[in-house]
Amino acid sequence: MIKNNIKIQICIGLVLLSYNIHAQNMVSMSSLHPETDTAGTDKRELAIRYPDLRQFGVSATHFGYSDFDAKLNDADFAGGKIRTERINTFFNTPAVKWNGNSLSASINYTYTSTELKDISNTLPDQELTPLTRDKSNFDLALNYSRSAKIFNHPIIYSLVARGITDGVNSFRRFNLNGSFNLPLKKTEYTSFSVGLLVLIDPSAPIPVEPIINYYHKFNSSGIELIVDLPNGVNLKKEIAKNAWFKIGSNQRSYTTFYDRHNAFLDGKVSYNTIELKSGAAFEYLFAKNIILTIDGGFNSFLSAKLFKDGENYRNASFDSDNKGTGYVNVGLSLLTF
């Protein structure tokens, strides 16, 4: 049984990895599930199915220690243990709609506490020291989408402009992504669409990647299959009234900014990780519009890089191999639909 579970987790991870998945800070769920494409689908049902479509949410995540080995300019630099604690909040504004157009905004806040310990340095003249750092980021996005027709077939175009800052006076990074989505099938229990996403972001592994959205509810078992690439793959089942159990893998990207002045990092830098969480979750809807989420599992690091100003994903001077670790998360979210 344990071996089968491991195989399932590996398969899901490989599927996601094959799409070079990344992106809480690069991809907006509004571009993948625009409100202009919800005709005939209950908004409340969609928000229960896709957590990022809810109007407000707050969560706290605890991670175990992870071993890491870092390289600086392709040379072995340092190793040790790293642990991260995060608090995330988001708010999605109601959409303004007109003539097939939809405009909305989203605000994300992330508090990150990072601890380094048991450091072993390889380069004698450049030393990484144990430390604990607390940082905050604000992520602001403007989401525009339009539904239209091409060759008599519906198509949804989306554009997301995003700015990330570690303070209230300046933005440290601007990202832009555009996408189109072709709905191919929509029935009472099944929906399927495909598309393409273009990313303008220095921390993105590739500039273009596919979008695949597939949903199916199996009537005999009540199990829901939710394929939402590049974000995740999940199986979900209602186990009691207003209570659901879910297993799957979901990815996110995180950015933390630092101002460092030493021998190997001089100036403004950003630490970017692409992480894949595989595990189980329990969700319970109470007080009509509030959802409690408790989940945990294994967190894998698909990428961990430190960028200086002017560097991108392919030429980042600092690259770290972070091992996976366990995680536990508790969150509350608001539907208000």
Rank of each mutant, 00 (worst) to 15 (best):
Leu159Glu: 03
Val160Leu: 00
Val160His: 01
Arg162Leu: 00
Gly163Thr: 11
Gly163Ser: 10
Ile164Tyr: 02
Thr165Cys: 12
Thr165Met: 14
Val168Trp: 15
Val168Thr: 15
Val168Ser: 14
Val168Arg: 09
Ser170Gln: 15
Ser170His: 14
Ser170Asn: 12
Ser170Pro: 00
Phe171Gly: 01
Arg172Leu: 05
Arg172Met: 05
Arg172Ala: 13
Arg172Tyr: 07
Arg173Gly: 00
Arg173Thr: 07
Phe174Cys: 01
Phe174Val: 04
Phe174Gln: 09
Asn175Pro: 03
Asn175Arg: 06
Asn177Pro: 05
Asn177Val: 05
Gly178Gln: 02
Ser179Leu: 04
Ser179Cys: 04
Ser179Gln: 08
Phe180Cys: 06
Phe180Gln: 05
Phe180Glu: 07
Asn181Ala: 07
Asn181Tyr: 08
Asn181His: 12
Asn181Gln: 13
Leu182Ser: 05
Leu182Glu: 01
Leu182Asp: 03
Leu182Met: 13
Pro183Asp: 05
Pro183Gln: 03
Lys185Ser: 11
Lys185Cys: 09
Lys185Pro: 01
Lys186Asn: 15
Lys186Pro: 10
Thr187Cys: 05
Thr187Asn: 12
Thr187Arg: 02
Tyr189Met: 14
Tyr189Gly: 10
Tyr189Ala: 15
Tyr189Leu: 15
Ser191Arg: 14
Ser191Val: 00
Ser191Asn: 13
Phe192Thr: 12
Phe192Gln: 08
Ser193Gly: 03
Ser193His: 02
Ser193Asp: 10
Ser193Asn: 07
Val194Trp: 06
Val194Asn: 10
Gly195Arg: 03
Gly195Asn: 05
Gly195Val: 05
Leu196Gln: 12
Leu196His: 02
Val198Arg: 08
Val198Glu: 04
